[in-house]
Design a protein around this nucleic acid. Structure first.
Lengths: 204, 204
DNA sequence: CGGAATTATGACTCCAGGTCAATCAACGGT
DNA sequence: ACCGTTGATTGACCTGGAGTCATAATTCCG
């Protein structure tokens, strides 16, 4: 599976060769198709494997969690470039899964993400609600989806040139600029979903 | 181009056959590859053509625009199922473009969307800023991206079963439920980017 | 140890993207 | 009106990778 991830990461979905993956894994092509059914099935397995290598939101250090929900988001976004750099193979696979052209495969991915919630977005948002930082007047399903959508896209834009609509310029802009944008992004998210009554002073 | 759109919409990116498109258009395969360079190039042209068939935000009826920025968003979201039903071929092509697996192609799409802004998101957000409904304390680039991201995903989830993480259930839930979710979604967006309308306390 | 059941193999088929030498059509100079 | 040049068009051909399947290898029991 790690080998499949490497190949998909290196060559993309179309570019990856089922036979090459089989050979690198020391099995025959027939075995791969027998087990995974198709290239899409192989990719799905690689995708699931990749998502499981990443931390869940609540895996942040206790000192960060203690500072609350939005601080934890800031923590993860601030660490995104570093984490991705450390772990770029699974990240790349997840990226391909997020933007894959085959809608049948995409449906499988959506279903998997919904069922397994490998990053623990649900429990994280519930944590936010419990500690009073996230509003209760909106259905939690919607907030979970919003958090998922925005953080995914923000992370992708931060570290993937192809997906950045000029916001972060990972390769062209200064780190300061990026940090400012991330801060503003979290501010937007906070405005969207924070509980109306916040005793904490909002800006640093 | 309309013919290419039909084929991509009907069979997906992988499933569409360059030769079949050429034949349906009454030209040879060689001509297609000569003109568009590759299947990806052909798709990009179809994608651009598809985006241009859709209305821009500010094309809403004057009576809607008069009610302001967020009312206009509600209007478009409420009409999404109807519009997509009327126009499902270009919609499907755009959808494929949004979730295509080839990152090289995705980059071209991102660049195009950023340069041409075919839905007029920028002018729409500027409109929102001018009529005082959208906050000015966050860089407009970020707000434009946020609006783009969220409305895209919301629309996709509304009308595309494959992409709905259980929120709208276009084929399974009641219309009432969907309307409620859309209303809450707009409420979230409003919280995120609306200007504080009580007293304009300048905060930074 | 032998034979059944299961699994693995890789040569093979099929098919779609991409190429290119040959052909055709348009144009303009004489 | 003719012909040569130039550029566009064609479709047979090539390439290579997904997916198949008859055969071989291995395992599993009695």
């Amino acid at each position: 599976m790690a080998i499949a991830m490497e190949h998909f990461a290196a060559h993309g979905y179309e570019g990856a060769r089922a036979e090459a993956i089989a050979a690198a894994a020391g099995v025959s092509k027939g075995a791969v198709f027998g087990y995974f059914g198709s290239k899409a099935g192989l990719f799905l397995a690689a995708y699931q494997s990749a998502t499981r290598t990443f931390s869940r939101y609540l895996d942040a250090p206790a000192s960060v969690l203690d500072q609350g929900f939005f601080s934890t988001i800031s923590y993860w976004l601030a660490n995104t470039p570093h984490m991705i750099h450390e772990d770029w193979i699974p990240y790349r696979v997840v990226l391909i899964g997020s933007y894959c052209s085959d809608l049948a495969l995409k449906r499988e991915i959506t279903k998997y993400m919904q069922q397994e919630d490998p990053y623990g977005t649900r429990e994280f948002v519930e944590f936010g609600v419990e500690c009073g930082e996230v509003r209760r007047d909106i259905e939690i399903e919607l907030i979970i989806s919003l958090v998922d959508w925005l953080i995914d896209r923000c992370q992708d834009a931060i570290v993937t040139e192809e997906l950045d609509p000029g916001l972060f310029g990972y390769f062209t802009q200064s780190a300061q600029m990026r940090e400012q944008r991330v801060r503003q992004f979290v501010e937007l998210l906070r405005s969207a979903i924070s509980a109306p009554d916040t005793s904490t002073g909002s800006s640093q």
